[in-house]
Amino acid sequence: MIEIDRVSKSYGERRVVDRLSLTIGAGELCVLLGSSGCGKSTTLRMINRLIPTDAGSIRVGGEDVTSLPAEALRRRIGYAIQSIGLFPHWTVEDNIATVPRLLKWREAQVRDRVGELLELFRLDPPIYRGKYPHQLSGGEQQRVGVARALAADPELLLMDEPFAAVDPITRDALQSELANIHRATGKTIVFVTHDIEEALRLATRIAIMERGRIVQLGTPLDILEHPANDFVRDFVGHHGLGLKLLSVRKIADRLRRGETADGEPLALDASLGEALSAMTARHTDRLPVCDADGHEVGVIVLADLVR
């Protein structure tokens, strides 16, 4: 879906992105992770040409991004940012409808699409369509921001620390909504963050960046289990490493099939962290597990978590 090939960018003497190459497949949720100034936002913004590259090439869907006008390119790529940037003089409906209207969709189609997206983000359409951004909470504004980015059903979505400015509870809700949307739509998402927990939770792959280069690229589990160097080890953090591992491993990997246990079952695709949490809260060392259809398929046992 995206091929970034030896791309560089300098501001004066400072090289913020240094011959970076990265290939992201369709349907991936690739997180660019790093501390501020590592070049992750710059990389993201070069994909939709908000920042021109100095050298190298970027292809989206096989086409070089410079082969079509910047505006046409951007209308095909969803874009959501931390500061949201909703248009304060437009209603929620008009904000979400921005790109569909630029693409000259029929008005009835625009209306339907806005309703669909508001429902996807659990914002009741009759109430929210006509509201202005200043009448919304921070979490609602960010939902509308992401809905606006998804409005024209782009294949690719770029997100620049979209949840960094909201409170932890709202952030948690937004992250699970994004994970659901990613699962349901199969969109390719490039997501920039400095928050390791967020990256572990959302990513199918994480690219850890430092000084304009990727220092490690891998699945969340790869990165926790085999950090490439001391920088990654420090960044991921020794502290709480075990809990982070539990949070990225799935119950399915430790399931004992055929056995049974009492209590409210856990989902097969829940993390081992959730299993540990449920066991601690319910004072038990074994819990039943069910699949997506609600059939019990086995149990998860405390001793297996640390295996």
Partner: peptide
């Protein structure tokens, strides 16, 4: 932020 969003969406 508004200007960046407008540009990023392809206005």
């Amino acid at each position: 932020s508004v200007r960046e969003a407008a540009e990023g969406m392809g206005l």
